[in-house]
């Protein structure tokens, strides 16, 4: 065996062995929602193989927004998330799955961020307003159509039980009111 081949073999063994070892050690059956561990930060390298467990997603998340007008009145809430009804074709072809799942992932990250703030006295809860999930939702909401007299906009994340109509939907996060013009001129 040549020196190069030997070196490549060692590199392959080390990479795969190290990666697999970290993947095994990094699996945590329970992860505290309000605590981001060292392992969580390595999410790009270490997979989380728990798939729908221990607490599966049992709610649909909804994003709504409303505007405050010049006279101080508020427009009715308007929902801007939509999910396609399940079809047979989704078994082969499901192009909008990513964007449909976004509100689920963003809401989870948003609530996790807030729980982290509650645990850490050095992190005021207002800091959520500069977090990636918050800014993502805000940027999305500001791109929606607004009445000409709109001065500020606000979003709401709510959860529902989907097809189970016995459970009432409930709000889980209400944003601050954000000036629309100011946002339009300073891209987040």
């Amino acid at each position: 065996m040549g020196g190069r081949q030997q070196a490549v073999r060692v590199a392959v063994y080390a990479t795969l062995g190290g990666w697999l070892g970290l993947s095994v050690v990094g699996q945590k059956l329970f992860r505290a929602p309000g605590r981001r561990s060292w392992w969580d930060k390595l999410y790009l390298l270490i997979p989380d193989w728990r798939f729908f467990a221990p607490d599966p997603g049992i709610h649909d998340f909804h994003l709504l927004y409303r505007d405050e007008l010049e006279d101080g009145s508020l427009t009715p809430w308007k929902e801007i998330t939509s999910v396609e009804e399940r079809r047979w074709s989704h078994a082969f072809w499901h192009p909008h799955r990513r964007v449909e799942k976004c509100i689920f992932d963003i809401s989870k990250e948003l609530t996790k961020f807030i729980e982290e703030c509650h645990r850490d006295p050095d992190r005021p809860v207002e800091s959520v307003q500069v977090s990636v999930p918050y800014l993502t939702l805000l940027a999305h909401v500001t791109e929606q159509s607004h009445a000409p007299a709109t001065t500020c906009t606000q979003f709401l994340v709510s959860i529902s039980a989907g097809y189970d109509e016995h459970d009432e939907p409930r709000a889980i996060f209400l944003s601050a009111l954000h000036p629309v013009e100011q946002l339009a001129s300073s891209t987040v």
Binding site: I58, F104, A161, G162
Partner: peptide, 9 residues
């Protein structure tokens, strides 16, 4: 409860 959601169910 997973199948009651529109996103996964």
């Amino acid at each position: 409860d997973i199948f009651r959601t529109k996103i996964f169910g």
